[in-house]
């Protein structure tokens, strides 16, 4: 559904994203992981049409984004990092404004969106009175206008307390599983996304280090050896030197995504 083919982005002489190839299929809950400044937001901003790739192309639903920008963006809902709204308008007015720009006029449906993100009771309050968590939820409601097939969320849990993070992630999990929406999240909070995503890509300094299905990636390097022995050191030496020894068995112990992420980053450094 979303394809990035050889996408590179330069800001003057700085290469923010270097030859990225990604394929995100329908119904995927895809996490783009990486430290701050890795190029996550740049990739998401290119998918949402805010930035033009220096080279390469982006396909949304098998159509070139550059040639079909308007229609493609209608099928995408976006939550930007540190969402911004008009402080002198209420939450409801802010969402209505964006809904009209998207050509969507169903006030009842907008009321339901505010219900989904638990903001209906505060929807008439000015946004300047909202907490960061409420702004994130309002941004999610705005992203859901017109029921888009794709949701792009840039650091949606940034600055939220554990309860806020839990609420947002639960909502996303629900959208992915129940409504089969394609969701792309960027985050450096590895633990947050581990529970919900099925695909990941790890990016650092603009380069995709690893990507694929989460289960496969975690299994890939994580087979452990369980050996029954009275002398572990001897056994270890023995196994290292004699690969033909049959008396050991693998157990399917999964690493946590956090361990995997840190290992991958360290390998490159």
């Amino acid at each position: 559904m979303i394809e990035l083919i050889g996408v590179t982005k330069y800001f003057d002489k700085l290469c923010a994203v270097d030859n990225v190839n990604l394929c995100i299929e329908e119904g995927d809950l895809f996490a783009l992981l990486g430290p701050n400044g890795a190029g996550k937001s740049t990739i998401l901003n290119m998918i949402t049409g805010l930035l033009e790739p220096t080279c390469g192309r982006i396909m949304i639903s098998r159509k070139k984004l550059k040639l079909n920008k308007k229609n493609a963006l209608r099928s995408i809902g976006v939550v930007f990092e540190n969402p911004s709204f008009y402080n002198y308008l209420s939450g409801k007015e802010n969402i209505l404004l964006l809904a009209k720009l998207k050509g969507y006029y169903d006030r009842k449906a907008i009321g339901r969106l505010l219900d989904i993100v638990s903001l209906s009771q505060r929807s008439n309050d000015l946004v300047r009175k909202y907490s960061l968590g409420m702004k994130q939820r309002l941004a999610l409601a705005c992203a859901l206008i017109a029921d888009p097939d794709i949701l792009i969320l840039d650091e949606p849990t940034n600055g939220l307390d554990p309860e806020g993070i839990h609420t947002i992630l639960n909502l996303l999990d629900g959208f992915s599983k129940q409504k089969r929406k394609t969701i792309v999240i960027s985050s450096h909070q590895v633990y947050d996304v581990e529970s919900i995503c099925n695909k990941i890509a790890i990016i650092n300094e603009g380069i995709i280090l690893r990507d694929g299905k989460l289960d496969e990636l975690l299994q890939d390097d994580t087979l452990s050896c369980l050996i029954t022995t009275n002398d572990p050191e001897k056994c270890k030496n023995f196994l290292t030197e004699k690969p033909w020894v049959k008396d050991f068995k693998f157990i399917n112990r999964k690493k946590s995504l956090k361990e995997f992420y840190i290992e991958t980053i360290k390998k490159v450094k």
Partner: peptide, 14 residues
């Protein structure tokens, strides 16, 4: 700044 323009452009407006 505060980047409300992003919301508008993301709706498909040029």
């Amino acid at each position: 700044n505060p980047r409300t323009i992003r919301n508008i452009l993301a709706t498909g407006c040029s």
